[in-house]
Design a binder for these strands. Structure first.
Lengths: 217, 217
DNA sequence: TATAATATTTAGGTTTGCCTAAATGTATTT
DNA sequence: AAATACATTTAGGCAAACCTAAATATTATA
């Protein structure tokens, strides 16, 4: 199995396992990777034989330590390239994902580490997601959802939980970028939408769906 | 055919056609790409159908305009990444080829052009090879071989015609890098080796083979 | 020009990563 | 607990990109 394909499977399984500790299901992996479930069955069987995942027929799969490390290293590469694309090449945060999706599969450890160094060993990518170190260790940074705050709390926006271009572009329009100060002014009982004030300016309403995808600290 | 494979075939054909205007031969393409001639036959048939090369049974193949453009754009990407690896990440000129060989296949025009801009739109890569512009045009820069100079000529080293790490490392050891002043002091009749002085310092001998791979202006 | 040497192509195979359709297993609901 | 719904796997296929061995063209040489 090419490292390109393998890394994508492991990344998908990693992501799904974060959401559901039992492991990743065939159908969900198929959805993540835009392939059919039958293809996934075939692939995860091979990945199991290779020792990067735990595979048992009809069970959710989980990553072995080896598999987890590959997944995390792929995430590291992805996020470092995203920093490069934004900080050095001036791309916007909603434009970079497809490019990073390719660049993450360039496997030269020396390249990755020199890139990290060139970028100042960033700890977060342009979306606020943490960048694991070269041994695969994440700094534990406990952000919470904007929807979980108590009224009249002021926090700093640190991340997001949805990376679609349309969501990112909408945040731009609202002036909601990483680092801004957000104060929760009101929680509307009817639909759980929230009134927020950004950097002390006049407030505006955010739907619960939007607020729920914003992380802060 | 994946763009990865296609670009490598077109690049190989481009290179071979530079050497031999008749076109590229099956065997030579196979050697360049480390595949068997039978595989090349199969592939060039497909590339012919696709319209990127002119293919006729038993004849040397040449690039169509479309194919030539793809080849040159691949070369552009390769050389821009090489500049990045040396200028920004601090790699040495003998280390970068394998990485650039992968990075060249990342196809996002906006990425390439922003990268070029970030690097200051360089005209030459770290080996002195010209970087075509985004429309595939090379600036014509007529360097000549060190072996073609008349005695006592002083020139600037501008490029090389061999990119193997061992050759590059040897040049490093001799202090022969792009931009140095080289004076041709002697041509040994016996073996055509040459005595050169670099930046006005004490001279040393270079075999004809080495001198013949050094370009200057 | 016939023969030998070399280059190219054809024929038939393999592996990888995908597919559809059918079969089978697991989970949920009545 | 049986029936139904849903998830997963199996079986059989396909295209891409590689391979080896054999056949056929071309080119060079005697």
């Amino acid at each position: 199995m090419s490292s390109y394909v393998e890394e994508n499977y492991l990344k998908a399984i990693y992501k799904l396992t974060e959401r559901n500790k039992d492991g990743a299901y065939t159908n969900d992996i198929a959805y993540e990777l835009n392939v059919k479930p039958a293809t996934v069955t075939e692939s995860i069987k091979k990945l199991g034989e290779k020792g990067v995942i735990h595979y048992e027929k009809y069970k959710a799969v989980t990553l072995t330590e080896a598999g987890k490390l590959i997944a995390i290293k792929t995430i590291r590469k992805h996020r470092l390239w995203e920093v490069f694309l934004v900080e050095k090449l001036g791309f916007k945060w909603d434009e970079i994902h497809p490019m990073a999706e390719e660049l993450e599969h360039i496997n030269f450890e020396e390249l990755t580490e020199r890139l990290a160094n060139f970028l100042g060993n960033p700890e977060f990518d342009p979306h606020g997601d943490p960048i694991p170190d070269k041994d695969g260790v994440f700094s534990n940074n406990k952000s919470v959802k904007l929807t979980s705050l108590a009224l009249n709390t002021t926090v700093v926006m640190t991340g997001i939980e949805n990376h679609t271009p349309s969501f990112l572009q909408h945040l731009d329009k609202l002036g909601l970028k990483l680092g801004v100060q957000v104060t929760l002014k009101e929680i509307v009982d009817f639909d759980k939408s929230v009134l927020v004030s950004v950097n002390g300016k006049k407030g505006f309403y955010l739907s619960h769906d939007i607020a729920n995808n914003i992380l802060c600290k």
